[in-house]
Design a binder for these strands. Sequence first.
DNA 1: CACTCATGCAAGTATGTACTTGCATGGAAG
DNA 2: CTTCCATGCAAGTACATACTTGCATGAGTG
Lengths: 191, 191
Amino acid sequence: MEDTSQRIVAAATRVFGRAGVSGATTREIAREAKVNEVTLFRYFKTKDDLLREVILHSCRRYEYVFSDAPCETAEDVRHTVEAYAKVYLRKMRDNEEFIRTFFGELTRHLKLCRRLFVESTRLVRRRFIDYLLLAQKRGLIRKDLDITTTADALTGMLMAGILRRPLTDPEYSNTRFSKTCLNLFLKGIEP
Amino acid sequence: MEDTSQRIVAAATRVFGRAGVSGATTREIAREAKVNEVTLFRYFKTKDDLLREVILHSCRRYEYVFSDAPCETAEDVRHTVEAYAKVYLRKMRDNEEFIRTFFGELTRHLKLCRRLFVESTRLVRRRFIDYLLLAQKRGLIRKDLDITTTADALTGMLMAGILRRPLTDPEYSNTRFSKTCLNLFLKGIEP
DNA sequence: CACTCATGCAAGTATGTACTTGCATGGAAG
DNA sequence: CTTCCATGCAAGTACATACTTGCATGAGTG
């Protein structure tokens, strides 16, 4: 059934996320999905097949389209950047453990991870860059900035905040961190 | 001999880095260290013991002391920030694969990874924050900035650049990315 | 020479894990 | 009722891996 397959993929996503790729066992995934281990192998020939499916499925969750936003005033830019950051942060936080794990696996599963990280965010990244370019052309952003790396700098800051979350003290406020990132970024791009 | 033990730790660092903790085998580590697998176990009772030693040893490499830098002009601040970024980047790049792997293992070996990531950079981070605080008091940095998260934003940007390196296109320039980060940051903290 | 000590080597144990096979069952559809 | 078909269950295979044991060797030291 379709349902069973989805349950297995969902369970695998969780188990891969918390145990790592080689650390995750098909037995545990099956248990988490509440199916027999044999059933798992009926749906997915090998563990790598399952991994592949997990990654491909996780891509889809990121397909967020950056809606056209006004770009007339500095205020517009601020709102758009903030909206972008908000979406990005939520998507990342939803898959926090999974993302962290696959960063670790990055060099080992380069192609798949490229799909996961790059292709899944390509659309929204592209739109964000285009927006910043437009804003730059209209004089709302410094002319001397390289926009591509500028956009990546923002996402980098936010991502780093998520990734290192388990390391921070309990009293360390992540919302304050995100605010500072936005604050720095918005001031940093001002003409 | 001391030499043998060190060779094993060094080899383990490399193998853990490229294969992950559960992916790394004692056999491969031994081969990489050019010792018999039995010798490995004579020095380290278990694989986890070895992992522990690897992490503790890697901490030491980070013990960089931020030398006292002038803090009189905006130019001083720029130089200091750039110097900090440079050191940070080099340290990260030296241990790139290792760091990436252990980010993935973060939730699984929280205590050890906390040592690796947090404690090893605590000193230099503390000094950097103190420097920024001083600069802020002297009016060289905006008064409304929360300095702790500001410092972390910079390191976050730089770290993200390193971590996602294998994902970027060959023509993507990482030095340009780092430059943009510094550019944004320095403009972002201006009064 | 005799002794120690670090290491190598061959072999083995115990366990875990990916993956298979064969059969039973139970519910849905014709 | 019969026929599929998805799934469960028991058992097993093949292999890798962490870790052990016992012995040989060879270099350095008294």
